[in-house]
Amino acid sequence: MKKILPFILLLVFVYSGCSIKSADDYYSATESGEYTATISISCKTAVDCKNFDRKNAEILTDYAVGFDEGDTVFDVLKNACKENKIQFEYDGSGTSVYVNGIDYLYEFDCGELSGWEYRVNGKFQNVGCNSCKLYDGDKIEWLYTCDLGADIGNVYKVE
């Protein structure tokens, strides 16, 4: 008993920091807010990529999501994915959230320069998606790139 006590305490500690929900509970919870933004998620470049087998390019088109004051691009993505039951994965927390993959399409799936980028009202933002605050009626687009942004119009320049 003396030996396993620390492990039990550790388990309780870890458990208290987690909120565990079943899939149905997670997806049935709906969020609403006073403002709305539209979000599109597309991966046309991954469909064109020869080395990767991907069929549908449009994951979400012009979907309206409600959000509250101070919500970020990441919050809207999370809610949109929740309401449409789309898989997505991210790393980090706070302002340093990084989106690894959306709808089973991950960074590096189409070569070492591939990954997800986003733009708001047609402009790529130079901040992380959880630092980018939104305003009413903003239009968010998540685009998949195979070439560090060059194939979706966001050429990376070394300064």
């Binding site: 898989q87 994965e89 991950y106």
Partner: peptide
């Protein structure tokens, strides 16, 4: 650490 995959067992802190 990896949340890829289609068959969801449960969610922990919004991660499947």
């Amino acid at each position: 650490f990896s949340h890829n995959g289609a068959t969801v067992l449960f969610f922990i802190n919004d991660n499947r």
